[in-house]
Amino acid sequence: MDIRETSLPGIGVRYDLSTRAGGRLAVVVRRDGRYELGVYDDPRDEDLCRTVLALQDDEADALAGILGAPRILDALQELQALGGLQTEQLRLNAGSPYAGRTLGDTQARTRTGVSIVAIVREGTSIASPTPATDLVEDDVLVVVGTPDGVRDLRALLRDG
């Protein structure tokens, strides 16, 4: 697939995607952590995005999770090969303040920079959980991040 990257000086980066069905989509990644999705959907003006969706950080996370589920394993292997990042399994012990709450409540990515890519519960795994996914005692979180970030997340899950 053809993805083109265009710099938006002072704002961020825009990625253009063309689908096989002939649709064209723009993803603007803003430097201030927000995102915009635009669709070039004007039949008379091919430079114009009529439909523009602004996404906050957590909304973009959720969307990426939905779209990215099948790609997680590939991504994990790639990340490990990159170096500097580690994957780890963190257990949600009894007494964690987040047992019984949602993944979004932990704000793990914002606070530690670590991504939670899957949750293993009673032998089954929930691939790419969303911020709305519930956390239950004894869940095992599969996480990716820098060694420092993973250490911070471990403390966050234990102490809140």
Binding site: L8, I11, R14, R30, C49, V52
Partner: peptide, 24 residues
């Protein structure tokens, strides 16, 4: 200019990089 483009939802438009480059 950057504020207007953001407010009007024009960041994804194809002419926007041209405008921003001229500003730079």
């Amino acid at each position: 200019v950057a504020q207007v483009l953001t407010d009007l939802g024009r960041l994804a438009n194809r002419e926007t990089p041209v405008v921003l480059s001229l500003l730079v």
